[in-house]
Every structure is written in C-alpha cells, then in structure tokens.
C-alpha cells in the first residue's frame, strides 16, 4: 500500500472545490483516460487577473485527486502571475509530500494550471512540441528536459516517477537516458 500522508488521505476523502465551475473563464485539461489519470481545471479570473475561484474534475488515483484538490486551494486568491510560479513541488509540499512514484500527479496539476493560464490569456501553447520520446504516455524530449532541470532528476526511474515516460513498454528508456545525459552535460 502507498505510504500516503494523512493530508493526502484527507484531501482524497474530502476533496475541496470539486466539480465544474459554471462561470469559469479559464480551463486547462491534461492527461487522458488511456494514461490512467486526467485533470480538468476550471478558473474564474477577475479583471485584475486574480483567481477568485477554482475547481477541478479528476480521473485518477487517490494522490491525483488530492493533488488536484491541493492545487485549487493553493491558487485561489493568487494573481495569474503568482499562480504561474507555483511548482509541482509546491503541490506535493502542501500535501506533506507524495510517494516518489506518485510525483507525476503533482506534475499533472502544474501542467493543467499552465494550460488554464494560457487559455485565459489567449496564448496558444503548442501541443507537445519537440520530439516524441515515450509513445505510451506521449511525452516529448522537451518535457523531459524541463522536468530534469526543474526537479534535478538523475535517473530514468526519476523521469518515470515525474512524467510517467518510460513506464509503459519501456522501449524508450535508452532514449530517456540520453536526454538526461544531454541535460547534465550542458550543466
């Protein structure tokens, strides 16, 4: 059984801000049914770019639900600029930590937030730019590079924990190792 903190369990059993936000003016979606988890984040942003309400709908395990709940609690009341600085570690820390293998749940929260902010600002995020590395979970080299840099990841297992990449058929593991090496080489 996963070693979830009491806070993860509590946010799973009693998630905050669940459901569709009818008057949302920013929406960010990430994940898919096939991947095993997905998050749809709703924001209501006022004219001063402040998030006055947030809600979520999540398909996934207990830590995915808890991470989504935590995310909405963290960002409510923030300006979009403040919210854009929220990291996946902030989400994990809010919950008293996540099992290493479940860090991708917090990464999913961060990704949905980024998309919602872009959606509000009318910025087009290029869907998955870069070269596709992991076919099972559709993860590109650029995403891996970002995650390695931001979270100081060292091994292919780390990358799988944070992005799921390499966690399916495993045939991209060598390529992931090359990407990690290239980041480390550049310092």
């Amino acid at each position: 059984m996963w070693d979830y903190t009491e806070k993860v369990k509590e946010h799973f059993l009693h998630p905050r801000n669940v459901g569709e936000l009818k008057d949302a003016n920013a929406i960010g979606e990430t994940g898919s049914l096939n991947c095993g988890d997905a998050l749809k984040l709703f924001l209501k942003v006022n004219e001063n770019e402040r998030i006055i309400d947030a809600s979520f709908m999540t398909f996934g395990c207990a830590s995915a639900v808890a991470s989504s709940s935590a995310l909405t609690e963290i960002i409510k009341g923030m300006t979009l600029d403040e919210a854009s600085k929220v990291t996946n570690d902030d989400i994990a820390d809010y919950l008293g930590g996540l099992p290493k293998e479940k860090m991708h749940c917090s990464v999913m929260g961060k990704a949905a937030l980024k998309k919602a902010i872009a959606n509000y600002r009318g910025v087009q995020i290029l869907e998955k730019p870069g070269e596709l590395v992991c076919e099972c979970f559709e993860v590109t080299d650029l995403e891996i590079i970002d995650a390695v840099k931001e979270n100081n990841l060292e091994t292919t297992e780390d990358v799988t924990d944070y992005l799921k990449a390499g966690g399916g058929c495993g045939k991209c593991l060598d390529r992931i190792e090359e990407v990690i090496a290239s980041v480390k080489a550049k310092g």
Partner: peptide, 28 residues
Amino acid sequence: EGESILMLLDKEGICASSGSACTSGSLD
C-alpha cells in the same frame, strides 16, 4: 480509477484488489 475505489473500500474495512496501474507501481 481502481486505486481510488480500493481506498474507499478500505475505509469500510473491505479488502479487494485492482487491475489498475496505480496500485502496483507500474503505470499500465
């Protein structure tokens, strides 16, 4: 998702298992 169901069953003392990825540490 299976793990979430198992957690809610566990709260009632019910033991079962799932075919889901999240319970096993694998991702598929």
